[in-house]
């Protein structure tokens, strides 16, 4: 009955399989990914209508507007991170794999970021131009988003895991997660602000990098623990 050679459980192969699985699933449900992206665009486009079409005003608020919209968009996409797996029982199976759960969580978060974070980064120059940012500021904006959005996905994964199967989970996750996003917001927008007013911004980027390293080390453990609590 036993089939095939059983190799040593290979963590890397499992890790890759998890990423491939989640990317394949995202490809087959492209509409979900696009929804988040359009949300991002629409939120940013509301500001000229709501605040002022004056380019000087827009340029000043642009980093904050784009960052806040990215925060909201990334939070909106958190619902997809675990809840489908929770519904169809694959999350249960994931908890019973002979691999450290936190490592698999990291793979899932990475896949989630590739699908929901990277498009925001790629789209941000367009929105930056709409809001009158100049070339250097736009590149910096992209850089901060590139460093910051993975942190959002990592922190968000804890909230997504804690609110699995909870009534009103979608709104609840925003209450849990948004306050924790604040440092990323401050330094993400701070870097662009500093650069446009001719100040040093390397420090901000290093800090965002430090946040990323810390979040990558700590949040998978918290998310794994949260998943075990939520699946009970």
């Amino acid at each position: 009955m036993s089939k095939g050679a059983i190799t040593q459980p290979s963590l890397f192969a499992a890790w890759r399989a998890m990423i491939v699985r989640d990317l394949t699933l995202a490809m087959r449900r492209r509409a979900d990914v696009l929804t988040t992206l359009f949300f991002f665009i629409i939120v940013v486009s509301l500001f000229p209508l709501g605040v002022s079409p004056e380019m000087a005003v827009l340029r000043e608020i642009a980093p904050g507007v784009i960052w806040v919209a990215a925060l909201l968009a990334s939070m909106l996409s958190l619902g997809r991170l675990f809840s489908d797996d929770y519904q169809d029982g694959t999350l249960e199976q994931m908890l019973l794999l002979p691999q450290p759960l936190s490592v698999l969580v990291l793979a899932k978060v990475l896949a989630h970021w590739l699908v929901s974070g990277v498009p925001l980064v790629l789209l941000s120059p367009l929105l930056g131009m709409q809001l009158g940012l100049d070339g250097d500021a736009i590149i910096l904006m992209m850089l901060t988003l590139l460093l910051g959005t993975p942190v959002l996905s990592l922190i968000g994964s804890v909230g997504a895991a804690l609110t699995l199967g909870v009534r009103g989970g979608g709104v609840l996750v925003s209450l849990l997660v948004l306050p924790l996003y604040i440092p990323v917001l401050i330094f993400g927008t701070g870097a662009v602000d500093a650069a446009t007013s001719g100040m040093e911004f390397e420090g901000h980027l290093s800090l965002l990098g430090a946040f990323f390293v810390l979040a990558a080390l700590l949040t998978p453990l918290a998310t794994a623990a949260a998943l075990r609590i939520s699946v009970e």
């Binding site: 609110t163 909870v166 609840l172 209450l175 009970e232």
Partner: peptide, 11 residues
């Protein structure tokens, strides 16, 4: 909010 949203007291 998290605490009051979850029905099972232990969870």
């Amino acid at each position: 909010s998290l605490q009051s949203a979850i029905d099972d007291p232990r969870r």
